[in-house]
Nucleic acid binder design. Structure first.
Lengths: 228, 228
DNA sequence: TCTTGTGAAACGCTTCACAGCC
DNA sequence: GGCTGTGAAGCGTTTCACAAGA
């Protein structure tokens, strides 16, 4: 229990802190000892001033005229985001997407471990995905309680997502990442983040189409090149 | 004749329009002919007034005192988002996540068809995923030009994402959905949307931890920090 | 000089309240 | 009476400009 003060850090900032942390890991692997806000911002794809403002929520992190210590900043960010402690997660719905997530090394390397994988398909139950055996969805409550998981990931079809969500919440899960294309309703005190992959594509397509209809603003657009 | 004006619709609004469109499809399947902003907003997980403001970007869509025609609003939204016309997409990197996306029916039902799947692994090349045969990544330029695809999806490891991106752009792709955990740099006129799954989980975990540190529920969020 | 840290302005999005129309 | 459409207020985030400090 260090003096980590939970000053309300804006959610948008938290998301970027996670990105900075990953970039710093890469810099550390390259043997770098210091980095400036400009370089770090460039690698993270953000504005340098914005990066400094983000870091200012953690108090002074750098040295003026010099930059940031890679190791020092990394430790600071890691602690602010919850430390290296392992976080037990359960995932429900091992279709294509669920299996991909359960086997995604990007999670494990950040302290997230899937301690429970649940599916309703008898053909999937019993198989091993990402080092964990899939169990029948009937055992959901037992698994959540046994593992004390507070984070749940839903990758089921939309039709059953709400009932799965209800069961997760009843069993003690307070944070849910929802990939099913429905709006989940949860009681106060439970947080849901939604990731909607087809919406992402649709937004991209909209912008793409919008750009195609309007002629190039300056000479920014290259000739498309496809003639017949 | 088609007086649909592509007035700059906020990006956040575009994302929600796609959600409304999906909800409307469900209502149509249920045989509903009309719906109010309240009901539609509830199903989409948003504020009713916000929904009406979103729709206001398309001009008047409903009937005061009555609500919205399900079929009429659906047609309007569909057209605003780019219509039903099929959009050719290419996807590079058929690991677990890439395969899941290529086989995701949620895309196909919205007019997105993967006309090119590319991978560098000889063991993956030649297999069929979601009705399309995987081809060697060397053929990237040829596939993009042959299909006139303007949308690309990158699900490769981070190390090769930038080079894949460069090749997509050079071949004519102007809109990219990036799942690799790196910031891609692209010339002006090209749009990149990034989806970072491990960041989503990390933000969720941060909020989860933050809530765990403050024992009291709900109302206690405001009272932290002030000294009398 | 160089770079961080930060108030303040600027921006975009959300929420509210109510006018307008059925 | 009921519901939509919308100006205006409110809020959070981003950007700017510069003071502070190694």
């Amino acid at each position: 229990m260090t003096q980590s003060r939970p000053r309300n850090i804006p959610e948008a900032t938290v998301a970027r802190l996670a990105v900075y942390l990953r970039v710093l890991a890469g810099l550390a692997d390259d043997g770098r000892s210091h980095v400036s806000s400009g370089e770090l911002a460039s690698a993270a794809g953000v504005n340098p001033a914005g990066l400094r403002k983000d870091l200012s929520h953690l108090g002074p992190c750098g040295v003026r005229g010099v930059g940031y210590s890679v190791a020092g900043l990394r430790a600071r960010l890691s602690e602010a985001l919850g430390g290296e402690r392992s976080r037990p997660c359960v995932l429900v719905g091992l279709g294509r997407l669920g299996s991909a997530l359960a086997d995604y090394t990007g999670f494990a390397s950040r302290g997230f471990t899937f301690v429970g994988l649940l599916d309703s398909d008898p053909a999937t139950v019993g198989t091993r995905v990402g080092g964990c055996t899939v169990r029948p969805v009937e055992e959901l409550e037992a698994v959540v309680r046994a593992t004390a998981a507070t984070i749940g990931v839903i990758t089921t079809p939309a039709e059953v997502a709400q009932s799965v969500c209800d069961r997760l919440v009843a069993a003690g899960v307070r944070s849910i990442l929802n990939f099913a294309p429905v709006a989940l309703s949860v009681p106060a005190g439970v947080d849901v983040r939604k990731v909607d992959l087809s919406v992402e594509l649709q937004v991209l397509a909209f912008l793409d189409q919008q750009r195609a209809q309007v002629p190039a603003p300056a000479a920014a657009l290259r000739t498309a090149g496809s003639l017949g």
